[in-house]
Amino acid sequence: MTTPPTPPATADEPALRADAERNRERIIDAARRLYAREGLGVSMAAVAREAGVGNATLARRFPTREDLIAAVFADRMDGYVAAVDTALADSDPWAGFAGFIHAVCAMQAADRGFADVLTMTFPAAKPLEARRTQAYNGVLELIARAKNSGHLRADFTDEDIVILLMANAGVINATGDAAPNAWQRLVGHMLRSYATPSTDPGPLPPAPTPRELYRAMVRLTRPSKN
């Protein structure tokens, strides 16, 4: 039995593929804007509206929320891995460790969605989780190097970094643009608590002003737009 020949491509197919790719990019760009501004609590319907596409079009491109999150944050997770690699390349174990903490917390501050991604897991998003695992293994090495150098407390664990990222995400989500540098104060205090008594953790960043904190507290009373 002979196999039926494949029907020839029609003139419309390249245009349809190009249109589908444009819709995909519009959806990713829209989700990136919304997640960065409002966090991962944004609904799929809100993403569709921001992108100017129908819910059905969004569902065809990204059947699940995890599919969309994986596409939006692939480059951010690459940056996370790069931050670990940069820290490991530092010849000073404490400077590498502290530099990593600053870098990853700054990444959270720059993107509220990524602040959430770093404190959550997405089992179905395998490429995203593979990059997270790669970064995690590097972080374990960073911790071991800093401890062996005598600068990082012996009782520090990798779970403490998860706690820090959760706390930092909370500060970022609470303060927003009302006190945009508050997270730096948190990180400064935490690094002081991680360092051994003989280690100089550097100067403590300035605290938010009373006006900034008041604005942040007022901001928390406003209803969510999601």
Rank of each mutant, 00 (worst) to 15 (best):
T6G: 07
T6L: 15
P7N: 12
P7R: 15
P14D: 08
L16D: 07
D19V: 08
D19W: 13
R22M: 09
N23E: 11
R24D: 12
E25M: 13
I28C: 03
I28S: 08
A31D: 10
R32E: 06
A36W: 10
R37G: 02
E38N: 12
G39V: 04
L40N: 03
G41S: 13
V47G: 01
V47W: 01
A51F: 04
G54Q: 11
T57Q: 15
A59P: 07
R60C: 04
F62M: 00
D67M: 05
D67F: 02
I69K: 04
V72I: 00
V72H: 01
A74E: 12
D75L: 13
R76Q: 13
D78P: 06
V81F: 09
A82R: 15
A82L: 13
A83I: 04
T86R: 14
A87G: 11
D92G: 00
D92V: 07
D92K: 01
H102G: 01
V104L: 01
C105I: 04
A106P: 00
A109K: 07
D111N: 09
R112N: 00
F114N: 08
D116A: 01
T119Y: 05
M120F: 02
T121S: 14
K126C: 04
K126S: 12
P127A: 11
P127W: 10
E129W: 06
R131S: 13
R131Y: 09
N137G: 15
G138W: 08
V139A: 06
V139T: 06
L142V: 11
I143L: 14
R145V: 07
N148R: 14
R153A: 15
R153V: 09
E159T: 11
V162W: 13
L164A: 10
I172K: 06
G176E: 07
N181H: 10
A182E: 11
R185E: 04
G188A: 00
G188I: 03
Y194F: 05
A195E: 00
T196A: 07
S198C: 02
T199S: 03
D200N: 13
G202M: 02
L204K: 05
P206C: 10
P206Q: 11
R211Y: 07
L213F: 09
L213V: 10
R215C: 11
M217A: 15
M217E: 10
T221F: 05
N226D: 09
N226Q: 05
